[in-house]
Design a protein around this nucleic acid. Sequence first.
DNA 1: AGCATAGTTCTATATTCCTAGAAATGTCGT
DNA 2: ACGACATTTCTAGGAATATAGAACTATGCT
Lengths: 104, 104
Amino acid sequence: MESDLATLFKALGDPTRLRIFEFLRDCDCCSMAIGDCGDVRPADGPTVGEVCCRVTGLERINSTISHHIKELKNAGLITVERRGKNMICRINPEAIGKLAGYFN
Amino acid sequence: MESDLATLFKALGDPTRLRIFEFLRDCDCCSMAIGDCGDVRPADGPTVGEVCCRVTGLERINSTISHHIKELKNAGLITVERRGKNMICRINPEAIGKLAGYFN
DNA sequence: AGCATAGTTCTATATTCCTAGAAATGTCGT
DNA sequence: ACGACATTTCTAGGAATATAGAACTATGCT
């Protein structure tokens, strides 16, 4: 759960992670999540599995995505919370604020 | 001279490079540069050598700093221009603008 | 309890990256 | 042309990282 700037930037510096991050951010802004590979439903955020099969151009094995999500979480960019069998992922607004402030 | 976002973030994701970047940014905002290890003079920007001996807490060999500066340049975050025997480094405002826009 | 589903952790491998020293390049002054 | 200075490029070694497959953990359902 570090959050110094270099750590934040490093986490976003990998193309795969950046896509995941942007996907989560887009879900966040419209407060909808995309259902398990097809349908659409309102939700707190997409699950790890939804990230796996929904982030376009992302052809990565489950364990790889899980690893990247963990890294985003450790950097403090997102939060991950259990909801039944699933883990739902959300952007951490504080981190965004921190980054936004840095360039102004 | 790439400038996609992942590349920008990756360049800033290394602690050494981030310090260099911030040093250059601070020089830029006050339009002063710190002279060769001690004195202060007006200038377009600090030289590579000045970065080497002036960035606090940076104990890196010359070639290492040069390598990092090159990487910042390749990412499009800074510009490097020859001035006599020296190379002067400057922040690229476009890149800053791009990053600022990204988080708003 | 037993099973299916959802994710995580472990292990291994190939690639990338950071660092530093040595050699090379470019520029200026004499 | 020569030497001093500033910086880059080359080379190499060690650390970190991305990826994937297998094994494991956690949860819910029947």
